[in-house]
Design a protein around this nucleic acid. Sequence first.
DNA 1: CGCTTGGTTCGATGTGTGTCAACATAGACG
DNA 2: CGTCTATGTTGACACACATCGAACCAAGCG
Lengths: 125, 125
Amino acid sequence: MSNAKVLPLIEPADGQAVAPCCPPLTERPFSAEEAEVAARMFKALGDPVRLRLFSAVASHEGGEACVCDISDVGVSQPTVSHHLKKLKEAGLLTSERRGTWVYYRVEPSVLAAMGQLLTNASAVA
Amino acid sequence: MSNAKVLPLIEPADGQAVAPCCPPLTERPFSAEEAEVAARMFKALGDPVRLRLFSAVASHEGGEACVCDISDVGVSQPTVSHHLKKLKEAGLLTSERRGTWVYYRVEPSVLAAMGQLLTNASAVA
DNA sequence: CGCTTGGTTCGATGTGTGTCAACATAGACG
DNA sequence: CGTCTATGTTGACACACATCGAACCAAGCG
């Protein structure tokens, strides 16, 4: 096991600390704290609009997209902004203003952590 | 790739059809329908109590546990039953009554599907 | 039968959240 | 400086949801 640190190496973003989220799922019952942290990330992806926005950013060139490119999800623009903020607070996206437009990027480490959480789980079961 | 069917082979449970959930996350932006299906599963795991219940079942012997074994999550028993029902409706758990006790089991295919969704995503990004 | 234990369903209640319209802010461009 | 476009923020509102107590089924057991 040379890469056991894949899960816990989530760096704090703008000031929103993203705690290490992912103890193995089928190894032991989640503690209350572990569940709270992990559930926060699942909840962030638990909305159809957010999931579409997230996949739009993730599937964009270089995992980066400006709001104008992804804001066609059937809701008003304030709602888009609201959901992007939620995703940012959950540590799944980071934003950066470059001139007129604001670009959003995915946080690969968090994604990998959640993936391994579930992948390891299914491997055990 | 010999196991491309891991994702879509989710069988309908008691009468609650669990649709195939997981197109690749970073390949294309999710459609509204895809997002709705996938978000339903993420939302099911987006509650701390549900996540603890789910991991308790998953980490139990053979991925099977009766309610009496996992109902110690800090909420009342009706609430536990309510959350287990939600997890069952989301296709993540199945229940079976054996004599006095009701046993809940994990649905491995769904878990694998969600894991690959995120794992593939991080691999691409 | 009636009692006990395990589990679900029902009704009610408070909190959370998704949504929009209206307003505010940040650059760009004359 | 004024204005226009692109995003973010605020306030309000409706709906969903998590939670609990009480009532209700289901099995075993005397």
